[in-house]
Write a protein that binds this DNA or RNA. Structure first.
Lengths: 291, 291
DNA sequence: TGGCCGCTGAAATCATAATTTCAGCGGCCA
DNA sequence: TGGCCGCTGAAATTATGATTTCAGCGGCCA
């Protein structure tokens, strides 16, 4: 965007590309280090030159010489390149990708890896006991209230959509044009509040949860792995939302809600399946769908 | 390394956990930095204390004090902790753990596999040309209109939330209490309509897309892999939503929207990043957040 | 064999990052 | 009001990491 980016002038080649290019002419100690870098498993930029040298079993001097020879002013410059390409990308770098004969093994792969890690951690962390209890309540509750603000709103919306597939009376709060207070007075002990609160949370969420607790209504709190405990939550389910890119990954919560939905239908048994069929028939009659 | 073998068995308290614990008692400048760290989506250990301080808008002294207060000997120790914990959570480690101690009950594994398959297929199928063009338009459009019904509504809501992080004028249609018609008259050639339409689509979606086309406004159509072509779509991006369970998996579309968001910010360049910072500052001023 | 050459790592030097000090500020309370 | 106290960032200090120097080594070839 800004007309004269300093980056624009520099050569946009990635560290790996530069290594590939120089590999044949590298002396042995530097090559040892270069090869270590090429199949380095973690985040290269999290390590300093001394550590890399030690890992490759060469001297610090060799490391320093390698980066010079690759055309960097110093090690620090290389480290930044690696880090910033991952975080911001560079328009030039991305553009180059299309023509490049041997492109980076598709950056898409890195996004995919991120999401898979988040999902795996989410499923791994789930508290079986809380899941069990919450599921039973999702099925038995007279009424379900869903609430989520900001980045959590769409997850509450997703949960609502799923839940109304197999049970009635699932409300997403607040309804447009209404304040929360109007609904809170309806909270009842045999209802369930599901509060979705990923960072960053707004104080309002606490107030809703507290209101539920004061009315003896259980609360299922769905949040991120790093969140502290909430005294108002009856059950807490945590999701990993970490990503190495600019925005968090919400595939974890999606997986969790999908899981809850499928298991809830199973628990519901025949009634839930019948409801699914009813909805289908109703739509059919109204010719709601395109295809 | 030094002679003693590192203790890989004990899981050390994470940096984030320590921050959560101390958050209430932190003075404002240190808290600002702590907040930044909690929200940090990238690889924290790739940054040094000076940079983090600058990003948070506090002095280096504050950074140094924060890590001391959190119980670390110094910043370096914290940085290593973050880096090494990441290794703990790496897919390889997670995989081993599944076989070893507490295996994921095989059914959770099956859910996980489903989502991973859906994500992989989604990323594999993406049309590079359409992505490229759509991205440019997401950045350049004067105004973006988002629409999605039924099961697609929450994805449109997610996309809106992401996009307003880096650009203004992103509308989710229809606004509560209004009909679509009122907005359609505002459609303009240099705007963009993003229509999310997973199975099963309602006829209304077609009408909106058609209206856009009639007004020479380009349309990005996000749909499922099995959908037929839409004559009203300028670009089409398809996601795999298949699942072996009762409900579809929508992690594919989530991954796609996440990808579009990250790449769009990159394209936007400095302007987008500045906007991210502005939003953060505005929130700070309004004391919008809980923690 | 002897001389050249480039490579190597240890150690010296240099550069930069992290920590500590310190003076000033602002809230709080007697 | 004045004195205390904890917070703050600029600047001084210290620690750590990176680079450069340098002596020694080993291959190569006349």
């Amino acid at each position: 965007m800004s007309g004269s980016h300093p980056q624009t002038k520099e050569r946009p080649r990635s560290l790996e590309a530069r290594i590939q290019e120089h590999l044949p002419e590298l002396p042995s100690s530097e090559r040892k280090l270069a090869e270590l870098i090429l199949d380095f498993p973690g985040e290269l930029s999290a390590y300093n030159a001394t550590e890399l040298a030690k890992l490759a079993g060469v001297s610090k001097a060799a490391a320093s010489r390698l980066f010079k020879r690759l055309g960097f002013r110093n090690f620090e410059q290389a480290r930044r390149l690696v880090r910033d390409i991952k975080q911001w990308g560079s328009p030039i770098y991305l553009h180059e990708r299309q023509q490049d004969s041997s492109p980076l093994p598709s950056e898409k792969q890195a996004f995919l890896d991120d999401h898979v890690t988040a999902l795996t951690r989410t499923f791994d962390q789930l508290s079986a006991a809380d899941i069990e209890a919450a599921l039973q309540r999702i099925v038995d509750a007279r009424r379900i209230w869903l609430v989520g603000y900001r980045n959590s709103y769409f997850m509450a919306a997703y949960a609502r959509w799923q839940f109304i597939q197999f049970r009635p009376r699932v409300d997403l709060l607040p309804h447009p044009g209404e304040t929360l207070g109007e609904h809170v007075t309806e909270f009842a002990p045999d209802d369930l509040l599901i509060a979705v609160g990923m960072r960053r949370r707004v104080p309002e969420l606490d107030r809703v949860m507290q209101a539920a607790q004061e009315r003896d209504m259980p609360v299922l709190y769905i949040t991120d792995s790093l969140a502290g405990d909430k005294p108002f939550a009856t059950w807490t389910l945590r999701c990993d939302i970490s990503s190495s890119f600019l925005f968090h990954s919400y595939v974890g919560p999606m997986g969790l809600i999908h899981y809850l939905s499928v298991q809830a239908v199973r628990l519901t048994g025949k009634a839930g399946r019948l409801r699914l069929e009813d909805i289908e028939i109703a739509h059919e009659k109204m010719r709601d769908f395109d295809d």
